[in-house]
Design a protein around this nucleic acid. Structure first.
Lengths: 121, 121
DNA sequence: TATACCATTCACGTTAACGTAAAGAGCAAG
DNA sequence: CTTGCTCTTTACGTTAACGTGAATGGTATA
């Protein structure tokens, strides 16, 4: 069980950021008797997903769509098929991203060896 | 040689976006006699880098720092060393990103096989 | 139980990254 | 050379993602 400033410190943001995410429906922590927010371990993993999404340039709305979709109860064949469809699209996107990053890495390595070569003259 | 709306269409943005990037110093296209912007192939590659940066969640300021650094004339040993230092930092970042994305991919694949298993019952 | 420090909810402010509208000028086609 | 479209600058508007008080209330500790 964590307080809001615990999480804020852990993720390097302000409490306001966490409250804002709740305002958007990304989190729904429970409260104490006195009305204070308390966060569980599953809130922490949820937050990890959110920040990971941010690191890859997704908007908070897109992130919401993703975390909620993979979080709902996937009973019902139709729902399950839709989820699988969505998951495969996301998988393709991720694969493209990886390819692109690998290209970027090769480009940087190429530049680095060129610069180092110039330096040793 | 391209007009501003050529590039806008090619990259799926509005001319205003391209002008805004110029305003920030990300591009410096030449002009016709009448004052209209004309873009060369090297402007196109520059723009590709910009949009690639955006896809990975960098701000336009960070992108500017990167494209300008790798674009200047790298004479002078000191400048060269600074550039190499910077490049190695970026390389480490890119490698981290790749690792993270590979984890995401495994997670998605895990979820997909689980859902598909449930579907075939 | 007092006090010092958290927390809470408004509510307005800020910045990045453009959108949009107005007023004028370039330019290709007929 | 005029018509119609595209381009130019200027300038104000917009939205996402928070920042920053202000006023108030909970809570651990001396």
């Amino acid at each position: 069980m964590y307080t809001i400033s615990d999480l804020a410190e852990q993720f390097g943001v302000t409490p306001r950021t966490i409250r804002y995410y709740e305002e958007l429906g990304l989190l729904t922590p429970s409260r104490t008797e006195g009305g204070r927010r308390i966060y569980t371990a599953s809130d922490v993993t949820r937050l990890k997903l959110v920040f990971r999404g941010k690191r890859f340039g997704f908007s908070l709305d897109e992130i919401k769509e993703m975390v909620l979709l993979f979080d709902e109860d996937r009973t019902g064949e139709k729902q399950l098929k839709v989820t699988i469809q969505y998951g495969e699209e996301k998988l393709a996107e991720v694969n493209e991203r990886i390819c692109e990053l690998v290209e970027v890495r090769e480009e940087i390595e190429r530049l680095l060896t060129e610069f180092k070569g110039r330096l040793s003259e």
